[in-house]
């Protein structure tokens, strides 16, 4: 049995895992403060799942690497697959048109199929940098955000509201920035880590900061509803 070296884990802990645990706890606390009806909202449930999942896998990754074991499979499984699917489902919950919602389902099935084929063929490995999968999931997320923005400027339902007061608008924007900025870093991770470790440690901060911002925004969506329920003021629509 492997003995856990918790001292090493806590020794390596910096602001990032702590911030993620903080947002996850904040999200959970906010969720329990919500009225029953609001708890049923798909967007809120998915936001909470994403916040908790990111905190979980980032800490799991940290724990594994602190034991001297490669943690790439954690990121490949949770970040590249599970979190991507949750983000796609979150964008799907913002969409109003049936055919666009079906497109997201098709994206998810397509993504999982291609990933399975890549892994079975040996093109991708569960413990590698996951460049191909990152490329694929970023493209699908960008397409999904595109569908949302298309609806935003064409559908009457969206034309009646102010997008700057819409949670779906800010969430889609945050997801768009998170995935596009992370993508640039993820595809160059292996190269930078091997050839330029100094640059690697610097640019690694970008997806980390984006992840914290994205989680904070998702938490905010939960608290906006809590405040709305408490004070009956309209802050953010979900």
């Amino acid at each position: 049995m492997i003995e856990l070296n918790l001292e090493s884990f806590f020794g390596r802990m910096d602001y990032y895992p702590i911030a993620l645990i903080g947002t996850a706890l904040l999200g959970l606390f906010g969720y329990f403060l919500l009225p029953k009806e609001q708890k049923k909202s798909k967007a809120i449930k998915l936001s909470l799942w994403i916040v908790v999942l990111i905190a979980f896998y980032e800490n799991l990754g940290g724990l594994i690497v602190s034991q001297g074991i490669s943690n790439s499979w954690v990121y490949n499984l949770f970040n590249s697959h599970v979190a991507t699917i949750l983000f796609l489902l979150l964008i799907k919950s913002f969409l109003k048109q049936r055919n666009h919602q079906i497109s997201i389902n098709v994206f998810i099935v397509f993504f999982l199929s291609v990933s399975t084929v890549l892994h079975l063929k040996g093109i991708s490995h569960y413990n590698d940098g996951g460049e191909y999968i990152s490329f694929l999931n970023t493209v699908l997320i960008l397409c999904s955000c595109g569908l949302y923005f298309y609806e935003l400027i064409t559908m009457d339902e969206f034309l009646e509201v102010n997008p700057l007061r819409e949670f779906s608008f800010w969430a889609s924007t945050a997801i768009l920035f998170y995935f596009s900025s992370s993508f640039m870093i993820y595809i160059s991770f292996t190269y930078l880590y091997t050839n330029h470790p100094d640059i690697f440690w610097m640019v690694r901060e970008i997806p980390r900061i984006m992840a914290i911002l994205c989680n904070l925004l998702l938490c905010l969506s939960i608290y906006a509803l809590v405040l709305k329920a408490k004070f009956q003021v309209e802050i953010i629509h979900v």
Binding site: F149, L152, I153, T154, F158, L159, E160, P163, L164, T173, L176
Partner: peptide
């Protein structure tokens, strides 16, 4: 892109 979307949304509105 995002700012353009907001401007187009306003115009459509």
């Amino acid at each position: 892109f995002v700012v353009a979307m907001v401007i187009i949304h306003r115009q459509q509105q």
